[in-house]
Amino acid sequence: MDRSSTHRRPDAAGLLIALILFVITGLIWWDMTTLQISSVYGPGPKAMPIVVASGLLLLAIANAIIAFRGGLPERESLDWKPILLILGGLAALVALIAHGGGFILGTTILFAATAAAFGRRAFLTDLVIGFVLAILIFVVFAKLLALSLPMGPIENLF
């Protein structure tokens, strides 16, 4: 790959990364200024945030320079649909756990959504497989090993 001749244009995504690093630097700095208590002896809780923020600032600048020169690696086109499916599955899991839907239902949906993201078309079959897997995990870990997993309507049947 000969970058120097063909990709001399600024890379928008690269600049965005640099910008995000700048924002994080600012956040750390702002958070550091809100600390009220310092150590009596030796460096206090602000020292490390200052070091990290300074380093990150330099790196943000370095990343920005690389992006301006178009020095980022080549990227392939990407398919957003499977990503949204998987993240949707995770979101469903979070929502179900947060609102008392339980571990089993959430895991079932996550399993089926991920399988769909990887090209499976048999959503119902996958739901059944996920459901069986989730129940198996639940029985072993929550019932036999007394781990506390999030409870919901199905869990309460056991």
Binding site: L110, F111, T114, R120, G130, S148, L149
Partner: peptide
């Protein structure tokens, strides 16, 4: 592959939930 990755995700989230059953952890 679909089932392998689905299984990986289930096990990954399950391990995290088991260590700390909080939605924030999954987020």
């Amino acid at each position: 592959q679909p089932w392998l990755y689905a299984g990986i995700l289930v096990f990954a989230t399950m391990g995290t939930i088991a260590a700390n059953p909080s939605p924030v952890e999954i987020v």
